[in-house]
Computed example of a mutant assay.
Amino acid sequence: MKQRPAPRTTALLTLLITVSLLVVPALADESAPSTLPHVFYGQVYNVDGSNAPAGSIIVASVAGSPAGTTTLTTAGEYGVGPGDGDAVKFAVWNSAISPGDTITFSIYGVRALESAVYESGGFTNLTLTASAPPPTPTPSPTGGGGGGGGPSGGGPIIPPPTTPSAPEVPVGQASLPLSATGEVSESVTVRTGDGVGSLTVGEGTHARDASGNLLGEVTIARADADGLPPNPPGTAIGFALNCGPAGATFDPPVTITYTLSEEEWEEIGDPATLSVMWYNPGTGEWQEIPATVDPATRTVTAQVSHFSLFTLAWAAASPGEATTPAVTGAPGSEVTQGAPGTAASGDLPMAAIAMVFGTVVVIAAGYLLLRRR
């Protein structure tokens, strides 16, 4: 006759199985993806290097959608630093944001030179610099109060002095002013919408289209990275620019300038390997153009005598080199990557841990039951 399990054993088995059924779904649910705000703090400057004034508004955006706003309470400073628990945190987040998305910033409506990569739960010291002076406010009409010859009325109204704003650089396309002899009569600069690329046609340039006619307009735009020709062996390419019209020629050459943010500059790896290349559709190959690299301003410039597809190129990391994600922030700043308590890359997922735990519990329960029989 088989021995029936003791009541105590049966109760223990029932408890183990019940716990496994409750814990496994709870642990598995922790593996569901979630994101936390990325907090930023640091210094904020005008284009001339002076502190941005108190009251300036900083707006963070991801793919054109707002993701956070803060107002400076102290000139030249925003957000929260370590130990400044009473300061206002500048938390960047929206429902559509994903790790790795690029965050752009604007200061009093002017785009900042710096950008950042979103990290769930990140805490980053990032210096922000406006790329242009603040917009000049339009003086409101001064209301007149009746005539009277006394001290309180009747005197001439003297408008406050205004500072002329810097000329706005056109975006995407610009017309070329031509002299009677067909030369460009005034230097013209046009930039891409994100400010990375710009094109300057100098005064006195002979500009012609592909048919040899006088050129009255130039265009510049970022090219889609997915549609670029294959990289030259051993190189990485990016920040491609389409300059038009295609086939246009210039004498003397015009200047193409790449201006990168701190984060974009760090992603290059070794700036000494930077070069500018143009794609030759006749040969199907990229060809290098002499270029000047200035690490202090994070710019790369090249002289080109014709229009085509241009791109920055740099030495690709060898397969044996470890790759680490770019760390956003000012040099020397402390950055916490990832939200506290989140698993690091390569850790065992929580769903797998839950399944292993449940399996062990069930096997142990079965083993105890068989021993009692």
Rank of each mutant, 00 (worst) to 15 (best):
N242S: 13
P252N: 04
A344D: 13
V80D: 00
I353V: 14
I157Q: 06
A75S: 13
P82V: 10
P295V: 00
G148L: 07
T162C: 00
L260H: 09
T301V: 04
L126S: 03
A96R: 07
Y279K: 04
T311W: 00
H206K: 10
E262R: 10
A96P: 00
I107E: 10
F105L: 05
S140G: 11
E264L: 08
G153A: 15
P170D: 13
D101G: 03
L274A: 03
I107D: 09
L274P: 01
V300F: 13
P325E: 11
N125I: 01
S131H: 02
T359R: 02
A63D: 09
T299G: 04
N46I: 02
P159G: 02
N125P: 01
T359E: 08
G366V: 07
T323V: 12
G148S: 09
T342G: 10
N231C: 01
G195K: 12
R372V: 04
Q303G: 03
S211A: 15
P331G: 06
T200K: 12
G320L: 07
P245Q: 09
H38Q: 14
V88P: 05
D270F: 00
A240N: 03
P290I: 10
P156K: 11
G145I: 07
G81I: 00
G247T: 02
T14E: 03
T129S: 08
Q173S: 15
V92S: 08
S308G: 11
G227D: 13
R191H: 11
F239V: 06
T235N: 06
P37V: 12
D226Y: 02
L215I: 03
E267Y: 01
I17A: 05
D347N: 14
P271I: 02
T74Q: 12
A315Q: 14
Y41N: 12
E263M: 11
G244M: 05
E183D: 08
A339L: 10
T129R: 12
L178I: 11
L178H: 05
M350L: 15
D29N: 15
E186I: 00
L12R: 13
M355R: 15
V80E: 06
D194F: 03
P151F: 06
A132S: 14
F40N: 03
S308A: 13
M350V: 15
D194R: 11
F250K: 02
G332E: 04
A210G: 02
A302K: 08
L370A: 15
G202Q: 07
N125G: 14
A291F: 08
L368M: 14
A313W: 01
V356S: 06
R4P: 03
A343M: 06
G68T: 07
P135V: 15
A130R: 01
G366A: 13
A236P: 00
P319T: 05
I363Y: 09
L369K: 15
